[in-house]
C-alpha cells in the first residue's frame, strides 16, 4: 500500500513539480534580464542571474519569491488586515460557497424538472447550454451593475456569478444520473405501484449520487472562478480577484502571482473536500468498495 502510493502518486507528481520549477527558474532569467541590466551595471554572469531571481518588481517572479510572499501574507499578517491573504481568501471563499450552494440547488431543481416534466425536457436544455456559450467576462459586469443599481452589493452579486457557472455541470450530471436506473428497475417500481416521488426517493436519487459528486467537483471549481471574475469589474477592494487587480495597477507581480496561487490552492482544497465526501458516501452506500 505504502510503496504503491509512493510509486503511483508521490514520485510522478513531484517529478513534474520539480521539472516545472526548473523550467520556471530558467525562463525567469531572460524575462527579467532587461530590467536587471537597466538597474545594475558591471555584474558578473552569476550575479546577473541571481538578481534576475530576486527583483522587487520582476516581470516573472520566481517560485521562492511567491512562496515567501504567500507565507508572509498568510501567517505574519493579522487575519483582519487588508494585506492578509487569509482575509482576501475568506472573502472569496464566502462568495464561492454561497454561489456553489445556489448553483447546486438550481442545477438539481432544473434536472428534476427536466426528468419529470416533458415540456421542460424539450425546452430547457438548449437554454442551459446557450447560457454557457456567453462569455462570463461579458456578463459579469452587467450583473454587478444591475444589482448595484437596485442596491444589492457585496457577496450576493458575486455569488450569482458563481451560481451562473456552477449550475451547468450539476444540471447535466443530474439529468444523466436521475435517468441512470435501467428499464427493469423502473418496471419493478411500477409493479409495486410506486408513485413518481417514491421512485425518485428510493431509486433515481440514490442512483444519481455518483453523477452528482462528479458534477460537484467541476461545479465548485467553476464557482471559485465565478467569484474571482465577479471581483474584477466591481471595483471590489477585498477578495483574491481584487488582490490580483490591485497587483496589476501597481505592477506588483509577486502579489498577483501569490493571489493566483492562493486561488489555485483554494480550488484544490475544495475539490479534494468533495472528493473525500464522495468516497465516504459512496463507500457507505456500497457503490464503491
Amino acid at each position: 500500500m505504502k510503496t504503491s502510493y509512493l510509486a503511483n502518486k508521490f514520485i510522478p507528481v513531484s517529478t513534474i513539480v520539480i521539472l516545472i520549477g526548473l523550467f520556471w527558474y530558467l525562463v525567469a532569467v531572460p524575462m527579467n534580464s532587461d530590467k536587471v541590466s537597466r538597474q545594475f551595471k558591471n555584474l558578473t554572469a552569476s550575479e546577473h542571474i541571481l538578481k534576475c531571481w530576486s527583483l522587487k518588481k520582476p516581470k516573472l517572479p520566481t517560485p521562492h519569491q511567491i512562496i515567501t510572499e504567500m507565507v508572509n501574507t498568510t501567517f505574519f499578517k493579522k487575519i483582519s488586515s487588508k494585506r492578509s491573504l487569509v482575509y482576501h481568501g475568506w472573502i472569496t471563499l464566502q462568495a464561492t460557497l454561497a454561489g456553489f450552494f445556489l448553483g447546486t440547488l438550481l442545477g438539481i431543481l432544473l434536472a428534476l424538472g427536466i426528468v419529470h416534466n416533458r415540456a421542460m425536457d424539450l425546452s430547457v436544455m438548449p437554454w442551459v447550454i446557450a447560457s454557457q456559450t456567453i462569455p462570463i467576462l461579458a456578463i459579469a459586469p452587467m450583473i454587478i451593475v444591475v444589482m448595484n443599481s437596485v442596491g444589492v452589493t457585496g457577496l450576493l452579486p458575486k455569488a450569482i456569478i458563481s451560481m451562473y457557472l456552477s449550475f451547468f455541470p450539476v444540471v447535466v450530471g443530474m439529468v444523466k444520473g436521475l435517468r441512470s436506473p435501467d428499464q427493469i428497475q423502473l418496471d419493478q417500481m411500477r409493479t409495486w405501484s410506486a408513485s413518481s416521488r417514491e421512485i425518485l426517493w428510493y431509486l433515481r436519487f440514490p442512483s444519481s449520487l455518483p453523477f452528482l459528486f462528479a458534477s460537484l467537483k467541476v461545479g465548485v471549481a467553476a464557482s471559485l472562478v465565478g467569484a474571482i471574475v465577479g471581483e474584477l469589474p466591481s471595483g471590489a477592494i477585498a477578495g483574491l480577484g481584487a488582490r490580483m487587480l490591485a497587483g496589476t495597477y501597481y505592477g506588483q507581480t509577486i502579489m498577483i502571482w501569490s493571489a493566483l496561487f492562493a486561488a489555485a490552492f483554494l480550488a484544490a482544497f475544495l475539490v479534494f473536500t468533495i472528493d473525500f465526501l464522495q468516497k465516504i458516501t459512496l463507500k457507505r452506500m456500497a457503490i464503491i468498495r
Binding site: 427493469i184 418496471d187 419493478q188 411500477r190 409495486w192 440514490p206 452506500m285 456500497a286 457503490i287
Partner: peptide, 19 residues
Amino acid sequence: ARKARQYGYVFQAAGLYPW
C-alpha cells in the same frame, strides 16, 4: 390488479439495489 398489489414480479436480472 397492479395497483392493488396482487402480484409479485421477478425479472430476468435480480435488480437488487446495490446500496
